[in-house]
């Protein structure tokens, strides 16, 4: 059996095989995107005068920014089979820190923004330490951090919003470098591209996926699992920090009491996009589609004057359907 005949197919079949594998990935992504398009068309029919206008599309994109950024960070964490529940209140804490740096301590706006993002990285570092070194379950470690961050945001700000007076800070979100597209949308776009590169082209993405696929196997294969887990949580924290900056820039103020609940929206976006909560499979493109699906639904339902309560019911149903379809698709892959 160890003849040249068995040797040949390996190398020859690899080239067509690669395109076949790539095609399957593309089909997956088209499926998620197709769902988004279908929802978009449905709302366009239901509300032809308001929904499909350029102004409303920009509104949708603008409202995707915060969830999208949080979801991008969460994608890496979830790919390692972890979870980060602290992104919502962590975002509020980073917003408060941004306010402290810029308003209270007079740090120049660009440096303040960088420091606030780095502070998010620090929150992630603590999460990573607790998960990787202390070996706490991610759910518990980040649940605790969710509470700590929520409390700290209130303590540091004195439980009062911090208002930004410098218009350039708000300009970071609301300004338009490109006519009619708010800067925040550009920030999300750039962040998504960076995340996609991190996930698919760098050691970080490769190791995050390996750890999520089989942590013990990755460990025995010589992957420094602890180090890379910490890095993953730090990266998640950096995205959280950026989200904190973007939400406070949009509001013109750091609201210490907001943030709770955003983590679940972020996780929903990641899951709708096709990243597996079991780990080992993460897609940045899917996450962006997932975040867009959530904001298109919210926006469309609002335009149709569907009450908030029913919006939540529908969103929950969408999550169920999305994850179920994903499961069916993977089952058919198994048999194929």
């Amino acid at each position: 059996m160890s003849t040249a005949a068995t040797d040949a197919p390996t190398s020859e079949a690899a080239a067509p095989g690669r395109s076949r594998g790539a095609r399957r990935v593309r089909i997956q992504q088209l499926l998620a995107a197709g769902t988004l398009v279908l929802i978009f068309i449905a709302f366009s029919i239901a509300s032809p005068t308001i929904f499909p206008t350029w102004g409303n599309i920009v509104t949708i994109l603008y409202s995707t920014v915060v969830i999208g950024l949080l979801a991008l960070g969460a994608t890496f964490v979830i790919t390692t089979a972890g979870i980060d529940l602290s992104v919502g209140t962590g975002m509020a804490l980073c917003a408060v820190m941004s306010g402290m740096f810029i308003v209270n301590w007079g740090v120049p706006v660009p440096i303040g923004i960088v420091l606030a993002i780095l502070f998010g990285g620090f929150v992630g570092l603590v999460n990573g330490f607790n998960v990787a070194i202390l070996d706490l379950p991610p759910f518990i470690a980040t649940l605790a951090m969710m509470m700590v961050a929520s409390g700290l945001a209130l303590v540091i700000s004195g439980a009062a919003p911090i208002y930004f007076e410098d218009g350039s800070y708000m300009g970071f979100s609301t300004g338009m470098l490109i006519p009619s597209i708010p800067n925040a949308v550009l920030v999300l776009l750039v962040a998504a591209v960076i995340a996609a590169i991190l996930m698919s082209r760098t050691l970080l993405g490769r190791y995050a996926t390996a750890i999520g696929s089989n942590r013990e196997a990755a460990d025995l294969a010589g992957v420094d699992v602890k180090k890379w887990l910490i890095i993953v949580y730090v990266v998640g924290g950096l995205f959280t920090g950026l989200a904190g900056v973007m939400i406070s820039a949009r509001l013109g103020s750091a609201q210490p009491a907001t943030g709770m609940g955003y983590e679940l929206d972020a996780i929903a976006a990641v899951v709708i996009g096709g990243t597996s909560l079991a780990g080992g499979r993460g897609t940045v493109f899917g996450t962006m589609i997932g975040a867009l699906i959530i904001s298109v639904l919210t926006n469309g339902l609002q335009i149709l004057s569907i009450p908030q309560e029913w919006q939540d019911v529908l969103l929950g149903a969408v999550i169920l359907v999305a994850v179920y379809i994903d499961r069916l698709r993977r089952r058919s892959e198994h048999t194929a």
Binding site: M1, P9, T10, A13, G17, R18, R20, G21
Partner: peptide, 16 residues
């Protein structure tokens, strides 16, 4: 690919 060939790993392609 080279190593899989040398080891006679029988798979249609490495993306399997």
């Amino acid at each position: 690919e080279e190593k899989a060939g040398a080891l006679h790993v029988r798979t249609p392609h490495l993306d399997q």
